[in-house]
Design a protein around this nucleic acid. Structure first.
Lengths: 143, 143
DNA sequence: GTCATTGCAAATACTTTGCAAATCA
DNA sequence: TGATTTGCAAAGTATTTGCAATGAC
């Protein structure tokens, strides 16, 4: 299930980002971009790589995530003051966060309409508008 | 400028939160609640306290911020994966973040209208919807 | 062979915990 | 005085940096 084509895709991806195709980068790119869109923390990604038998320092995962982000292959999502999340969906969109599990999912930008946004003040511009919908298990026992 | 009344206010505030009025707490409460609404990080608050001549460990600032938050006197705002911000405005509202300076300001909840929010999935409920408008200095040199 | 680039140990930044000391009834 | 609570040193997480080793050309 990872034939020649996928290998080429990954190489193309790294090449387009002007990054040398090291063993570690190929492994991380494969985990990140092989399936559909994903949201990961460095820790999760590192664990997955290790499970897959790829030995790598956690710092390398961080460095690679930042490089991918700078290259436009990932986008950082701010939903938690304790941990950085990276999203393989780099188009602008919003998020739903499960407060209990930390699980993130996407809301397409076009689904939400936000009106009443203030003008950016003199000399400033809006760089983006992020919406986070926090959800949790409903109180079962509501009388 | 900090007469008897303000002292009483602070004591009342701490008392209503069921917290003993220690020297450190009074000092922090004074910094936080004396003027209008504020957004602070633990680090900033600690620096201010020190400047004001109140010696205190940074950990005490964190503990106090959490106690105030649990008591409903503060609200935590998530806009940065690296640092926790606390807001003395505890009503529900949104934020503008200056990406360059880290400065936060408020947008009243009633100013924004958000339509198209998804239903919470089965058994889940929406706990809150947070909007962050990120702004930065406009590119001067746009041709 | 050269030299930009990588990968990771060590350092840093931020936050929380555990417990001795202080405080109140 | 004894139970409770406090304040902070030390520990714990999350992330970044600096540089020896590597690998592309």
């Amino acid at each position: 299930m990872n034939g020649v084509l996928s290998e080429i895709d990954l190489l193309g991806l790294l090449d387009s980002a002007k990054m040398r195709p090291t063993r570690q980068r190929k492994a991380l790119a494969e985990i990140l971009f092989k399936a559909g869109h994903r949201h990961v923390t460095a820790e999760e990604l590192h664990r997955e790589a290790c499970s897959g038998g790829i030995r790598m320092a956690l710092a390398t995962v961080y460095n690679t995530l930042h490089l991918f982000t700078r290259a436009g292959l990932l986008r950082e999502v701010t939903v938690d003051s304790g941990q950085r999340y990276f999203d393989t969906n780099v188009s602008h969109h919003h998020h739903i966060l499960n407060e209990q599990t930390g699980q993130l999912s996407d809301i397409g930008e076009e689904e939400l309409l936000i009106s009443g946004l203030p003008e950016a003040s003199e000399g400033m511009e809006i760089s983006c508008v992020d919406v986070v919908v926090r959800v949790r298990l409903a109180d079962k026992e509501k009388l």
